[in-house]
Design a binder for these strands. Structure first.
Lengths: 168, 168
DNA sequence: TTAAACTTTCAAAAATAAATGAAAGTATTT
DNA sequence: AAATACTTTCATTTATTTTTGAAAGTTTAA
């Protein structure tokens, strides 16, 4: 397979994965493009390579910056903005974990803990099942939360090291 | 908060979480309803409680069965089919992990390993960056894969036990 | 066999999410 | 201060996903 073809396939695959996990496909594709670009790219580069509009490119790049996956760069003597992605897979994984925890897990745990406060009659099967399911899921969420916190704080060698050994 | 209100909120929250993670919101809501229902429900129960059409209820329940989260039940002397969800949070987590691994991670790893075969000129920055990014992500994916395999095989006390201790 | 009870299908409609692109905004240079 | 170079916004359009519901299919019972 030629490099050019492989690059397109990588962009397509990363985009598909993103869309399966609730991330805008174009955003994942722009990220993929930046991941395989040795130099920072301009908005026009992104527009051209992926055939997307200026507005879309602009908003997508901003989202990627908000996700902490991409940063703006300025080149001396130039007015144009350049965009560059962190290429470190472990950093990317941690950053995605951090954002999704903040955006989704934390709010959900808040709701679950409210819901687990609900009072009722222990002889009511509906109440008992509700209570048990919510409490159980709460506990699981708390464990996931703790694991993510550890992952987020961890050094690069944590994943490649201790977990790897634990599960070999 | 009243139980009735709490049940609705749980269904809504579970549905929202699902849609954020690329799972049809209605499917997550039906799952939520079954999770807090002590008895198995009929298609009509689901249609009525969630105000969805017969076709939607039927397809969604089938999907949940295909995900291994719900099973059909038959009551003696009745022709109607009943649906019942496994309520164990750890089983649910493992089952979701198993399915998403099969549906998404495994195919992606296959593509990544093809892509990491691509040959090129080591002096070409595009080639070098591509190779490094793809190889790195491949390795991360392989680790995630291994971790999921362990999780899928693990007993209930694995999560509540060793991981919990490791990260306390 | 045929009617009744129930389930499944799928083309069309509705709802939702994403993309466009021209206009407005901002900063820099002449 | 006006032209230039570039970025951002957002109402509208387009694409994608989800839902509907009537018709077809299936199973059981009379």
């Amino acid at each position: 397979m030629e490099l050019a073809e492989a690059r397109l396939k990588f962009i397509e695959t990363w985009g598909k994965l993103g869309s399966e996990w609730g991330i805008n496909r174009t955003m994942a594709q722009v990220h993929a493009l930046l991941l395989i670009s040795p130099e920072a790219l301009t908005t026009e580069d992104v527009m051209g390579t992926l055939s997307i509009s200026r507005g879309n490119a602009n908003m997508t790049l901003r989202d990627l910056i908000n996700w902490g996956l991409v940063e703006k760069q300025h080149k001396a003597g130039e007015r144009k903005e350049y965009f560059f992605a962190d290429k470190d897979a472990w950093n990317i994984a941690r950053q995605v974990a951090r954002e999704r925890k903040k955006r989704e897990l934390d709010p959900m745990m808040k709701v679950l803990s409210e819901l687990s406060q609900v009072r009722g009659d222990d002889k009511d099967a509906n109440y008992k099942t509700f209570k048990t399911s919510v409490t159980d899921i709460s506990k699981l969420a708390a464990n996931v939360n703790k694991t993510l916190d550890t992952m987020i704080k961890a050094e690069e060698n944590w994943f490649w090291g201790s977990i790897f050994k634990l599960f070999k």
